[in-house]
Write a protein that binds this DNA or RNA. Sequence first.
DNA 1: CATCGGGATGCAAGAAACTTGCACGATCCC
DNA 2: GGGATCGTGCAAGTTTCTTGCATCCCGATG
Lengths: 153, 153
Amino acid sequence: MTPLDEYDRAILRLLQENNQMPQREIGAAVNLSAPSVQRRIRRMEAEGVIAANVAQVSGEAVGLPLTIIVTVELVSETPDAIDAAKRSFRDAPEVQQCHYVTGETDFVLVVCVASMPAYEEFTRRVFFGSGNVKKFRTMVSMDRVKTGLMLEI
Amino acid sequence: MTPLDEYDRAILRLLQENNQMPQREIGAAVNLSAPSVQRRIRRMEAEGVIAANVAQVSGEAVGLPLTIIVTVELVSETPDAIDAAKRSFRDAPEVQQCHYVTGETDFVLVVCVASMPAYEEFTRRVFFGSGNVKKFRTMVSMDRVKTGLMLEI
DNA sequence: CATCGGGATGCAAGAAACTTGCACGATCCC
DNA sequence: GGGATCGTGCAAGTTTCTTGCATCCCGATG
């Protein structure tokens, strides 16, 4: 993977804020021509530096006003059990984010649902369904203070 | 806010996966003309249904390979203290996401840093700097099983 | 029951943005 | 110093986006 220079990083800083800015404007901001900007973007997309280009949708607007952070502790922590848990969390559409973490708890999930009943249904299906969840702790978000995928580049 | 119909939701499903798909292709996928698709997208952007259009940058690629989930407990939970904490978390560039939550812990943060020393420096500056953090629990992500902002629309 | 009005649609033309071939210049390694 | 490699800017060609316009649908009204 080609190392990133200061131009690349400047472009990324702009794109992670707004990936619809015209290449011409990006070029003007970073002192490069539009074609040059475009070739750098292409390269970074091909190399996976830019993992995806997405629209950030408001949960409230689509009827998913609840964001819930859940820590999960498993009964069995064998590699197979861990993998099975990863798969089930990855496949659950309510799970927006999932991390396998160090410490007492094994997983941290960010879950987006329409209502508390919907959340309960989710826990029944995903947590109790597997039989391998020892316990989980539910933290309901009262304020999404900061969300997004912004990195300090 | 205009309620969303099935066309809008179909468009959102596509855009939250790839917001660079040409309107013509979106139109073909949802059975609408390109101009119609574009007017719907414009409307949803104006109404905040589409909150942002962003490039998702790989943390590894830009030298931020560590993702750490942190739960934070405050000493004082007065409204002023809560607000001050929200501000400081929001302003810290290492903090990618922050939620004010119910339960024993007050905040859950997702922090992206270059290294453990960088994380320690972060905790000193942001947690110990305020004098209002009673305790925090650090969970280092060993596997970012699922990330992103995808919603089940 | 006919008519009117608001809103969304598709078409087509015009505008803007993206893409690519090409020649030039910088850099690095003989 | 010579030559290969890589990235750059320019300009032309292509695609996509944007917008004016006529039409259609549907609900409200006379």
